[in-house]
Design a protein around this nucleic acid. Structure first.
Length: 337
DNA sequence: GGTTTGAACGGCAACAGAAC
DNA sequence: GTTCTGTTGCCGTTCAAACC
């Protein structure tokens, strides 16, 4: 058994993260990539199975649990069926270069939607992962730990596929960029054959929106550098950095999807601020600026914990509309210590 | 000079989610 | 439940620049 299953089992309690075998995350091995909602469903199913994803067992989830996920549409039997059809059509190709064996198989074996209780508004979905997926998961020694909230909020399948691919590379030592040929990039992004035939379209409609989406909603900042042969783009280097202050992304995840693009482009106001729920202010420049402007020099960790206690005692939410004013007034009162 | 390519711009259908 | 708005995904057109 590979290490990935151990990591998934250890983290099964953590509802905010999904452990994904790197072979799946690097979707370059997946043909017929599913549409966005089906991809999110796949992440939910793998997260639900966690340390048992490689076992030949039945997994189960209720529709009501799917509906609880923010970023997932309000599904019913009719809308779920084509998504499972998508997942059933996804083909995994695993090339074991040591054994010199290529394995081709499905992600899913069988999915059943039990609608006996549909009248009450609930369904039970049971599924068995395909043998190829289970073998891949069992033998996997590399994994990606994905922030579940980010995955469910990403707005296109291109974003999800690129995010899971880059996430599987982020923790590798001494690597902070990877170069993809244009055809590899198409495979990573899951661009169907014959679609977006020109690089200009691929860039404008798939790559750049995905980069912008990931940069806005995740802990990562991605950059792209086209590598040309003459005038033709032959490959693209994608670099990544982990944000020192992810509070803007967290704020965006907590806000409405409406107007997100405008905020991304800087053509609309940013969403209301949220004071960090944990930790100090050392890596939160926005809150540090407010503290300094208020003439306060108290320790960054202490002022944060004191302010959270202050809000808790008075029933003030950390995402209150005027949280910045309240924090500024609090800092001004604390002043120099 | 013809062809290919990237960049910029816009249009349209479909869909999701918010607002009422 | 319906309407409205924002967004995605895809395609087409035009222009300029580079290539053959």
């Amino acid at each position: 058994m590979g290490k990935t299953i151990d990591v998934a089992a250890d983290r099964a309690f953590d509802q905010t993260k999904t452990v994904l075998p790197a072979e799946v995350a690097r979707g370059i091995y997946m043909r017929n990539p599913p549409r966005l909602q089906a991809l999110k469903l796949m992440h939910l199913m793998i997260a639900t199975a966690a340390g048992r994803m490689a076992d030949e067992v039945e997994h189960r989830i209720r529709l009501s649990d799917i509906r609880k996920i923010e970023g997932m549409k309000n599904h019913d039997r009719e809308s779920l069926t084509p998504l499972f059809q998508d997942l059933a059509a996804a083909v995994l190709t695993h090339d074991d270069t040591n054994k010199k064996v290529v394995t081709i198989g499905g992600l899913m074996d069988e999915t059943r939607i039990d609608y006996r209780d549909e009248v009450s508004g609930d369904l039970v979905v049971t599924w068995w992962f395909g043998r190829t997926f289970r073998r891949m998961a069992a033998e996997s020694n590399h994994w990606a730990i994905l922030d579940r909230q980010t995955v469910f909020h990403l707005g296109s399948k291109y974003s999800v596929l690129l995010f899971q691919h880059i996430s599987s590379l982020v923790n590798l030592d001494n690597i902070s960029a990877k170069t993809f040929t244009v055809s590899e990039l198409r495979a990573v992004l899951g661009v169907a054959e014959g679609k977006l035939p020109r690089f200009a379209n691929l860039k404008k409609d798939a790559l750049m929106p995905a980069i912008a989406d990931i940069n806005q909603l995740s802990r990562l900042t991605l950059t792209t550098t086209p590598n040309k042969v003459g005038r033709t783009v032959a490959s693209v280097t994608i670099g990544w950095q982990v944000k020192k202050d992810p509070s803007a992304a967290k704020r965006e995840l907590a806000s409405s999807k409406i107007g997100r693009e405008a905020r991304r482009n800087g053509t609309a106001e940013t969403v209301a601020a949220i004071f960090p729920e944990t930790g100090g202010l050392t890596y939160s420049p926005h809150w540090l600026d407010l503290k300094r402007a208020a003439g306060c020099n108290k320790d960054n960790d202490l002022i944060a914990s004191d302010f959270r206690r202050f809000c808790r005692d008075r029933g003030i939410a950390l995402n209150a509309r005027n949280i910045e004013e309240i924090f500024s007034a609090f800092c001004a009162k604390v002043g120099q210590v």
